[in-house]
Design a protein around this nucleic acid. Structure first.
Length: 202
DNA sequence: TCCCCGATTAACT
DNA sequence: GTTAATCGGGGAG
């Protein structure tokens, strides 16, 4: 029997939620009923007052969901061709979210392979846009409720021991690179190999 | 309205 | 290592 992460799991700050999502299971029910599952192995936190956050300049139609209640999906479109998905965190009125960057495929790999146009399991969910494509996530799922919805949700998995969690600078941004807000579990499933994890500051 | 560029990926050399 | 692909968001004018 599987249980979903409850609303309160997402109600804290993005920097708290991001490492806590590692080791849990992203699940998706496709329109025809097929269920996809993958173990989350890489996340990034995007906070209010974070120059790298899409919501840094305030409330716009695109980032509306980020200001809403926690436990919903924020999906954005970028580079003219890619979608990426985030979990909204924190209380209503604050804009923070956790970007899901990579996962280890567990179930429904055949369907992921069709979407991704590759049979290489390692490439199915390794990267935020690859993950979104494998899970058939686009802007139509923006705002989906991960706690009560039937299209996409997060199940409690084995989690990750504190000792197995690495952290370091976020990927693909030009500001806020000093913040070690990328979290991952070492292995073949993460999107980018980085020289070394930096230790938590302070 | 114009214009630059992006929380990326794949296919190159 | 480099770069094209491709288009919506949002700041500037």
């Amino acid at each position: 029997m599987t249980t979903r992460l409850p609303r309160r799991s997402f109600a804290r700050s993005a920097t708290e939620v991001a490492p806590e999502l590692l080791g849990h299971i992203l699940a998706r029910r496709l329109p025809d009923g097929v269920v996809l599952r993958a173990r989350i192995v890489e996340t990034e936190a995007y906070d209010q007052n974070d120059p790298a956050s899409h919501a840094y300049r305030g409330r716009t139609p695109r980032v509306r969901v980020m200001f809403g209640p926690p436990g919903h999906l924020y999906v954005y479109f970028t580079y003219g061709m890619h979608h990426c998905m985030n979990v909204v965190t924190g209380p209503v009125g604050t804009a923070s979210a956790v970007l899901l960057r990579a996962a280890q495929p567990l179930e429904g790999m055949e369907r992921m392979s069709i979407r991704r146009r590759t049979d290489r399991v390692r490439d199915l969910c390794r990267g935020p846009a690859r993950l979104a494509q494998a899970f058939d996530v686009d802007r139509s799922l923006d705002g989906a409720d991960l706690v009560r919805g039937s299209e996409i949700w997060i199940e409690r998995g084995p989690g990750a021991s504190a000792a197995s969690i690495r952290r370091g600078p976020r990927v693909g941004i030009r500001v806020g690179t000093d913040l070690p807000w990328r979290f991952w579990i070492d292995g073949p499933w993460v999107s980018v190999s980085r020289p070394a994890a930096v230790l938590s500051p302070r």
